[in-house]
Every structure is written in C-alpha cells, then in structure tokens.
Design a binder for these strands. Structure first.
Lengths: 250, 250
DNA sequence: CGGTATTTTGAAAGCGCTCAACGGTCGTGG
DNA sequence: CCACGACCGTTGAGCGCTTTCAAAATACCG
C-alpha cells in the first residue's frame, strides 16, 4: 500500500537538486527502458502484488477482470500514452494483456507517487487523468446498462475512431486490432451478436469492411445517430453536423 | 485503508503552506453550513456549470445520467461521508438527487482544489478516494456486463449491507431507502425483474422482508454465493465461512 | 498446401422486457 | 375512524432480443 511519508524528505531533496521540474507525466517515464510484450502476453495478473505503474508506449493493451466461472469482462483498451496500474491496493484488481505487440515502461508505484507528490506540475495532470477515466467508466456503465447491441457496437466504433484521431476531423477508417471476442467482452455481448451486428451495419452501408480488422466509416452521421446517445444530428447526405441539442431533465 | 505517515512531514508542510494542517478531507468542509434537500430534490443537473464539490453529511443521494430518449442510468448511491462533484469538466456530467432527506456541505471547486493542493495530508486521501471509486466502477461494469438478474440483486444487497456496517460483522438487516425503480436503474434491469427476483429470494428463504424497504439477511452465506463473484463458500447451515479460493487465469 | 483459429451464419431456446392488471400502503380529508 | 385516491410494488402472459448450440466459411500460419 502507499506510504507517502517514508522517504518524503529525501525524495524531495533529490527532485530539487538533481532534476528540473517535470512538465508532463510522460517525461516521468522518459528515462526508463522500454519492455516489449508479444501478442497475448500478460503484463500482470489480477491478484499479483501491485508494485508498478506502467505507461503504454506502443500497441494496444486489454484490461480485464475474470469472475469465478470464467466470465471475462474487458474494462478497457489502452493505447500509447495511457497509463495502467494506478491504484493503491496492494494487489492488482484486474489483468493486463497485449492485444497487439506492445511496448511499455514501468516505474515502481512508490517512485511514481513520490514524483507526483513533489511536483506541482504533475499533480493536476494525474488528477485530470483520473477524472477522465472516471467519466469514461460512467459512459461505459450507460452502455452496458441500457444500450442495445447495435448501439453498443456503434458506440465502440465511434470511441475507437475518436481515440485514434485524438479528437480531430474523425478518421475515415477505424482500426480494430482486437478480436471479436475481445469486443464482445468489452461490450457485454457474445461474439455471435457482435458479428451479426457488424454484418447488419455493413449491409445497411453504414460501414464497409476494409480487411477483417478495419472498417471505413461510410456514413459517419448515421453511425453517430445509432450510438443511442440521444443528441440529434442532421443526417442528410451523411455529411452530418452535430446540432448539440442536449436533452436533460428539467 | 491508506496509512499515511503524518508526522515527520507535517512540520515542513505547515511551514510551506502557512495554514493549520487539515488531517482529513472531512475537516475541509467542517466550517461550511449544511444545506438540506427534500426527498426527490435535485442537488445539480447534468449540464449545469460545475462550480462546487459537495460532501454528503446525512441521507442518501442518487447519481445518474440520462440519455436522449429518457433512459436513466444510476451510476451510484452516495451516503454520509461520500463526496460528489469531483471532476475537472466545466459542467457536471451527471445529475444528483436526494433519495432520502439529505444534508450536504459545499465548497467551490477552486477552494477545494487549492486546499488539497496545499496539503500533503489531504492529497493521498483524495487519491485513495478516487482509486476506490474507480475500483467500484469496474465492479459495476462486471455486474452490468455479465451478471444475471439474480446475481445483480444479490450483489446489490451485499454492497449496501457492507457499506452500512463499514465492513464489519455484516448487518443482519439491510435498509434500502431507494425505490425499486432506482434499484432497477442502478442494476440495469426493469422494475418488474427486480421485484420478481426479490420475491424469489424471499420464497427461497435467502432474505426475508422487514418492511418494504428493508430485508433481513436470513442466509447471508447463500446470498454471498449468489452474487456470482466466483469465490466458493461453505454454505452448510448458513453460518458460511469464506474460503477464499480465488480463480485467476494461468 | 494443410491445419488451426477466428469469424460468420443458421436455428432454436431462454432470460429479461413489455404490456397489462391487480394489490398494498400511505396521506389526506371527510 | 374510515373512505378515497395516488403512488409504488407485485404478479401474470406473451414477446423479442440476445444467447446458446451447431456448423460452415474464411483468414492465418507454418
């Protein structure tokens, strides 16, 4: 568990004397050698002693929990720039495996926490990171709780599309490196339902396959409308423009 | 929970901040007058400018999101001691309403963040809080993604039972102040399914009604086993003892 | 090119949902 | 104290979406 004070003074001294202020969380990991993971290889397992924080440098990682009888729930996919292992429990509460070949850098939890604790630059960044994660988790609860299979798949496509483009214009093509089983376990569906739903979206011309693990977004406006997020869109001609007509109660 | 060393450190911290040390997040709110909410009254709404952080002092609050066509997802119930509004977005991403009469205290987000930022005591507490929230969110994803109706209801009963007793011996009686509709929207079910599932649990003697919004846990061991969390339990005679036989992959 | 894993497709079943009616409880007011 | 009504919870019947079980098709890899 995290005991912040043990070495607080020495860590502070070290930071003050040896290092310039770190501007970004990323720089924290800059000096650490990269490790590589093959496809399917695990980074750590649910129940392992939680000693490190990792930063994904390259590739895609899946984070998942398994309950007794083998049911698997993928709680997230991590891309370059994402961090994993952030928790104060002394064991990991989930497992992490490589979806694609992955490169990561690791820091001991203590080193990470002390560095953040003594950097006024880093603290807000960590805070922001955790807030974003929490917001994403809540969106996922909405998806799992109330969305239909089609809405889930469309939401997933949009999520990945947005993530890949860092938010900008929106990718024409979405890469889905994970298997259908991974998608199913992330979306709370079965592999068959995911497959059928995708087939239907293709038949309707909303997306079109581009290899088995990539899709072209033929009608991005339509796709957006099918996410079930309740905003309304001008869908004429599929050059859809978001009209941001939020619908709250009261 | 998190054992921080308070001592060697605090002298230095006090000098640095020129403020009396706050030992707990709770004390941050100590000087603020309480506000009260009637049953059903809203604290803030999804989309409102997010200017305050709240601490629940008394009662139960529900946190929920609504998507376009009226579907509601309750992402959590908050009890005395819990905090709400923690986010860096400039609008709230969810709404908060009183399930029971509620008392809260508020701090502006800025005041809160600055206080935490200047207190080495408070920072780890906030970090711990957010980590716990994240862990709870992931458990909820598991529930929503892969658990049956019965498992969901049992998990909910256990969750509330544990929360009420602060983790100790386990309450004989569980108070459920929220409506069946609230439970349904939290568990990703309909009100009818929740009702039917509870009826079945009563029929099987797992729980027994104690007023409409409370239940006695007649067979806590059985209840635990029905949560679908995959541990195994000795259920003979219902003086069940947890045998902690975790099941990870590999 | 053969063998394996993954994905797709088909048919049937099941769990939870929808629609509908009934019952119970509580507060109000006569 | 009881009658009434509104709200909430329960129960029932039937349906539909997703799952399950099974098999074929396709991609992947040595």
């Amino acid at each position: 568990m995290l005991s912040t004070a043990t070495n607080a003074h020495s860590a502070f001294a070290a930071m003050a004397t040896m290092k310039p202020q770190l501007a970004t969380l990323d720089e924290l990991f800059a000096s650490v050698p990269r490790e590589t993971l093959d496809v399917g290889e695990g980074l750590f397992w649910q129940g392992d002693a939680a000693q490190h924080i990792f930063e994904v440098t390259e590739g895609v990682l899946r984070i998942f929990k398994i309950i007794g009888d083998g049911r698997r729930v993928i709680t997230g996919f991590l891309y370059a720039g994402d961090m994993v292992g952030l928790s104060l429990k002394d064991v990991y509460l989930y497992s992490a495996e490589a979806v694609t070949p992955v490169k990561v850098r690791r820091l001991t939890k203590r080193a990470f926490i002390e560095a953040v604790e003594h950097s006024p630059e880093l603290r807000p960044q960590l805070f922001a990171l955790m807030c974003d994660e929490m917001a994403a988790a809540q969106d996922q609860m909405v998806l799992l709780s109330r969305k239909s299979a089609e809405e889930r798949v469309c939401s997933f496509l949009m999520l990945i599309a947005r993530r890949m483009q860092g938010g900008r214009p929106m990718a024409r093509t979405v890469q889905l490196p994970m298997s259908r089983q991974d998608m199913a376990d992330y979306l709370g569906l079965t592999i068959e339902t995911v497959s059928r739903t995708i087939t239907k979206l293709i038949a309707r011309g909303v997306i079109s396959p581009n290899g088995r693990h990539a899709f072209d977004l033929a009608k991005p406006g339509k796709l957006l409308a099918l996410c079930g997020d309740g905003d309304s869109y001008d869908d004429i001609g599929d050059n859809a423009v978001k009209t941001r007509q939020a619908v709250w109660p009261h």
